[in-house]
């Protein structure tokens, strides 16, 4: 089973929930993926022993100046303006290239080959008996999605079909989130009971509905703000899976990089209960 954790709004507690869930179900085989490749934080809490660091590249065109006759076809077909053809030279803008391969495929003279351009790394290791994989986007790179895709593919290759995969996604509602949650059996949306939390929760719900992924909500810092998130969930028939109270002690543990379930053992039961509820809801 693949369970992703997303939120819309940042800083609501995705990593806290993903890490705590994973640590609470260790009687199962667990695979943990940090797909927030722009700002991967799960390793701060899980302290994995990284055994392998794999560079991740996207293919970008290289022009063979001998074969090229500057016909301009590659620039014409490129949807991302990553190529410009001058009378005696072809300029490649690798940061704009999405790696679709169109120029290579369509060059009439076979003058284009593709070479890898590193956009980040994939770090593979073990933590608390779990398999752990995280992506880390190189600073200055604009496109996280190919890296997230690489992490998901690597995880698929290594995964025992009986294992539970927990995915920590990035905030927002655009392409990196879609790539991280795609294909999951269930998505936990973490929110907080504030107008910001609600606004961004509603956006995230729309994304997941569009992708057809069943979802439930965790309300973090429950007790602060107002109860409009509750009303929203009720109106939209979204189960509230868990509430974590607004508690300074939890905030301090978080600040130190300590998962709540390691210090407050009662939360392990709560997270196991949440897991059971998710499994039951998927059987219906």
């Amino acid at each position: 089973m693949i369970i992703s954790v997303a939120s819309g709004k940042g800083g609501t507690g995705k990593t806290t929930i993903a890490v705590s869930l994973a640590l609470s179900i260790l009687e199962e085989e667990v695979q943990f993926l940090d797909c927030d490749v722009e700002e991967p934080n799960a390793s701060i809490f899980l302290k994995p022993r990284i055994k392998e660091v794999v560079p991740v590249s996207i293919p970008v065109p290289r022009i063979d100046q001998e074969k090229c006759d500057f016909c301009g076809k590659c620039a014409e077909v490129c949807a991302y303006h990553a190529l410009a053809v001058l009378p005696q030279e072809v300029l490649v803008f690798p940061h704009l290239c999405h790696g679709c391969g169109g120029c290579n495929l369509l060059c009439p003279r076979g003058a284009i080959t593709e070479v890898g351009r590193e956009i980040g790394t994939m770090e593979i290791g073990r933590s608390n008996g779990m398999d752990f994989i995280q992506g880390r986007l190189n600073v200055g790179e604009a496109m996280p999605t190919p890296l997230i895709r690489a992490v998901r593919e690597e995880a698929k290759k290594r995964r025992n079909p009986a294992a539970v995969t927990v995915i920590d996604a990035s905030p927002g509602t655009s392409c990196p989130v879609v790539e991280a949650v795609k294909g999951s059996d269930f998505c936990i949306l973490v929110t907080e009971p504030t107008p910001f939390g609600l606004n961004d929760l509603a956006l995230a719900v729309e994304v997941l509905r569009k992708l057809g992924i069943p979802l439930g909500v965790v309300i973090n810092r429950s007790g602060m703000g107002n109860d409009k998130v509750d009303f929203y969930c009720q109106e939209n028939h979204i189960p509230i899976l868990l509430r974590i109270p607004f508690d300074r002690e939890i905030a301090v543990l978080y600040s130190q990089g300590i998962p709540i379930v390691q210090r407050k053992k009662e939360y392990m039961e709560k997270f196991r209960g949440m897991m059971n509820r998710i499994q039951e809801s998927l059987l219906i």
């Binding site: 722009e38 700002e39 934080n41 600073v139 978080y254 600040s255 130190q256």
Partner: peptide, 21 residues
């Protein structure tokens, strides 16, 4: 930023990005 280990980690990455540009 905020005084959490995650906040510090992420602040450094975005500071690197700003410096890069």
């Amino acid at each position: 930023t905020e005084p959490t280990l995650s906040g510090i980690h992420d602040m450094e990455r975005v500071a690197d990005l700003a410096a890069h540009f």
